[in-house]
Design a protein around this nucleic acid. Structure first.
Lengths: 243, 243
DNA sequence: TTCATTAAATATGTATAACATAATACAAAA
DNA sequence: TTTTGTATTATGTTATACATATTTAATGAA
């Protein structure tokens, strides 16, 4: 093992693009540029920073990828209101994410559904309730017990809930989590008989009961109902830790 | 207004880089490449796809920015397990996010804290409780009523809660939300006298009470306590919609 | 003058060639 | 065996040229 020398620090080995990216961000801040404002052209940056256009271009490309900058083709670039969610979409591929991340994202979803009750009660409209009613009815009518259909019903019902929250960021986030959810859900139900929960425990809460609760209940009662509705998932994910 | 011609589709105006990015992703999938695997070099891609190295390089740079690919300097590139959270960090700047997004992110945080109860009770350890105890004590000892200190206490206490959840993704997400939270919190408390809530409503729940609840309560009681603890924020954000 | 067309200027998009640099492997020397 | 030198290789960086679409200005016909 090589000995670590003292009184000598490693030289800066970071790439030019890294540095330029930082300088660009600093430039935006210093000049107090806001979304919508135009930014200087690539060549001007290149000259001022003393690097090639390529380097500036690559740094700008990063910011574009992050959604911080938008390039109007052949015209110039402007600062953009960064789209938080957009970047996730390209990489949220369950097959590329690790087991651990998947589990945490699944937990994340459970947390969201448990926590959104107040916003549901605050923002629900009659139209929302009617639509939810229809979703529940359709679900009950087509109750074949097949897992695939069960999943579709789940997605439709819970997706509608997110919609009712009227929080667009939350909604889009749920859209991202959906593939993860389906992925985990299908794996989870592989060896589990959901009917066991549905019909034997007696405490299982159906979509119908959740809907009724949303009509006449309170955030507090709804949370408790939701907790019991999600019981199988909680059971599954909490047991997973202990062998 | 120009009439829309039939039987003729607009030409593909998307950039080459866009197309190459898609092709690269498809390539990874088709060849079943997993994180850690090496990928062909830029020039090989360029030749096979019939475009310049520049284009391939820009497409790869995007994937690198998204964290899907890692470049070993001067050696080659490998697929990487994408880091969901990392991309947020660079753009999560409250001064660049719109009013509406900020509000939604603040709501998001409320939802998380309301929803995480089960995981707190499941994963808490004695060590966690001791540390939380100390945080609460320090908070009580330095209760000066100054908003800045109040904020620090909030951050310390609630940050510890996220830690107890043992969900790393959640924790890092909260880390991202922190600047947003502070930003909104300070604006929110500008014109509000928090003491009003603390001392007059009578139902306000302190950190001490939350801690006690976490010791001897259940997820259900904890959620109710947390809801009352967050009451000022809920009030503020829910009232905001109506003038 | 008014309107349509043309032309010039401009900034990004793409292509090509060349060299710099660092990681690695392997050979040569101590 | 250990160190040092060297060739190889893929990315990092620079430079230059051209393509293309948008804007602006100029031009010319009614």
């Amino acid at each position: 093992m090589t000995k670590q020398l003292k009184n000598i620090k490693p030289v800066d080995t970071g790439s030019l693009v890294d540095k330029v990216e930082v300088r660009l961000l600093a430039f935006f801040k210093e000049n107090n540029l806001k979304p919508g404002d135009a930014i200087p052209k690539e060549l001007d940056f290149a000259e001022s920073l003393g690097v090639s256009r390529t380097v500036v271009r690559e740094a700008l490309l990063r910011l574009r990828t992050l959604g911080l900058v938008e390039s109007k083709k052949h015209r110039g670039m402007i600062l953009k209101q960064p789209d938080i969610i957009n970047n996730f979409e390209r990489i949220m591929d369950p097959t590329l994410l690790g087991e651990n991340t998947l589990k945490q994202l699944f937990e994340f979803r459970l947390i969201l559904e448990m926590g959104m009750a107040d916003f549901l009660f605050e923002n629900r409209t009659q139209k929302d309730m009617d639509e939810l009613e229809e979703i529940v009815e359709t679900g009950e009518a087509t109750d074949t017990g097949k897992i695939r259909f069960t999943l579709d019903k789940e997605v439709a019902f819970h997706g509608k809930l997110y919609q009712i929250s009227k929080n667009e960021t939350l909604q889009r986030f749920q859209g991202l989590l959906l593939p993860v959810f389906e992925y985990v859900y299908l794996k989870e139900t592989e060896n589990t008989d959901l009917d066991e929960y549905h019909y034997t425990t007696g405490t299982f809460v159906t979509h119908r009961m959740l809907l009724d609760n949303l009509k006449i209940g309170t955030p507090e009662t709804f949370r408790n109902a939701m907790r019991r509705h999600l019981e199988p998932h909680f059971d599954h994910i909490l047991k997973k830790g202990q062998p």
